[in-house]
Design a binder for these strands. Structure first.
Lengths: 109, 109
DNA sequence: GCGATGTATGAACAAGTATTCATGTTTTCA
DNA sequence: TGAAAACATGAATACTTGTTCATACATCGC
């Protein structure tokens, strides 16, 4: 028995599993995952994110709104700029767990 | 600096981030996450899964196909039955990491 | 107040996707 | 061999969702 499955072995309600899938959806989009990766290194303004990703400001704003509504990021206003940062310590962990899997798979090839 | 971000701090290619988001998409569906949860406790046949989830066999088969193509589950034939199991140890870990987040959030309320 | 900068939002469109229903395939057993 | 069981698959439909474009909102310096 490995230590990774102790939670899953317990009863989990269908509603919780639904929320879990909804939660993973936030990571299931290229734009959002790239935004999250940028925020892993710290606070960024909307325009900074847009420039780093070569995306329109509108696209970034829309996705930030989704992440904000889900409490994955939190905004901070400084003058005209809005700085966003990750709102939850778990986010980096989940990101890394997934990334480890991907890199591990690539290595295996 | 916490130990969770050491990977993210490194350079990650846009393509890898794309693959990462594609990977998370598999977890971003209620039906698939429920199937995964069942398989966490071990091998199950298609009909067993369908019955446990009160879903049509066709629905389960379609989703298993997606998970199989992504190498998240692997099939084993025994007579007329097909038994599916998780193909990768990381899956349980990712599932639990997300679940931990959800349960933690619920607790906080 | 006014223009400029930075950001948010609404509507429309396009693309992707999960489910349904019907049918096809494989295997077993009589 | 033929029927039934177990599963897979294809097409159609309905739904969701990301992007685009235009526009609105908020803040700063003048």
């Amino acid at each position: 028995m490995n230590t990774c499955s102790y939670i899953a072995d317990q009863d989990v309600s269908t509603e919780t599993l639904f929320e879990l899938s909804e939660f993973f959806k936030f990571f299931g989009d290229t734009t959002r995952i790239r935004i999250i990766q940028i925020l892993l290194s710290g606070e960024n303004s909307v325009n900074e994110i847009a420039e780093k990703l070569s995306l329109e400001q509108s696209v970034v704003s829309h996705q930030l709104r989704i992440l904000r509504t889900a409490n994955l990021v939190k905004p901070r206003r400084d003058g005209r700029k809005m700085f966003y940062s990750l709102d939850d310590d778990h986010i980096g962990m989940i990101f890394n767990t997934g990334l480890t899997h991907i890199l591990h798979k690539k290595k295996g090839k």
